[in-house]
């Protein structure tokens, strides 16, 4: 179940999940999870436009079962698609807390990986990987939609191999 979050109650027991993790049943669950990675629409910059484009006709992430969701409560993946500023970081953390686990983070674009062209700005936050458990980094400024899809596929591979950072639940 992970750590206890204040003011949030859980209805499932962690023992069941601990047990499931040891059985092949987890593979089936992981198969379901990896094939239905719904991501949170939360465009933050140049990469956000490419994220939108990746969901549309030319690239169509729906082929992989990856569809955008608007509410963080129903999303599985949060794509950090741009520079995280000091003002936005609290909101982003809150979005992350609102998502139910298992949940994953994808860093899209140079800005979220290292700061990109804005690494020396007075307003941005660096080293996002210390704040969020990031599974996949997609380099590029901005990465093309194909790269985003590849990032999702890498995440799928990680989930299947049980090496991802999100499935603590």
């Amino acid at each position: 179940m992970g750590e206890i979050i204040e003011n949030v109650s859980f209805t499932a027991t962690s023992a069941i999940h601990e047990f499931l993790k040891k059985t092949p049943l987890q593979d089936i669950i992981n198969w379901g999870r990896k094939n239905s990675l719904w991501f949170l629409t939360q465009p933050m910059g140049c990469c956000g436009v490419e994220m939108i484009a990746a969901g549309c006709s030319h690239y169509d992430t729906d082929r992989f079962g990856i569809i955008p969701r608007v509410s963080p409560r129903q999303a599985d993946v949060i794509v950090i698609s741009g520079y995280v500023t000091k003002k936005y970081l609290p909101a982003l953390k809150r979005l992350w807390d609102q998502m139910p686990s298992p949940k994953w983070v994808i860093c899209m674009g140079d800005c979220s990986i290292s700061g990109g062209p804005f690494y020396e700005s007075y307003s941005t936050v660096q080293n996002i990987d210390e704040i969020f458990p990031i599974d996949v980094f997609i380099p590029g400024c901005p990465p093309r939609p194909e790269a985003l899809i590849q990032g999702f596929i890498e995440l799928q591979k990680k989930i299947m191999a049980r090496e991802d950072k999100g499935s603590e639940y």
């Binding site: 949030v8 859980f10 094939n35 139910p100």
Partner: peptide, 18 residues
């Protein structure tokens, strides 16, 4: 696809806001 979605939805964490 829908089977995968169902498996995912049914094994997701169940949150009730405080």
């Amino acid at each position: 696809q829908l089977i995968a979605d169902a498996i995912k939805l049914f094994t997701k964490e169940d949150l009730i806001p405080a």
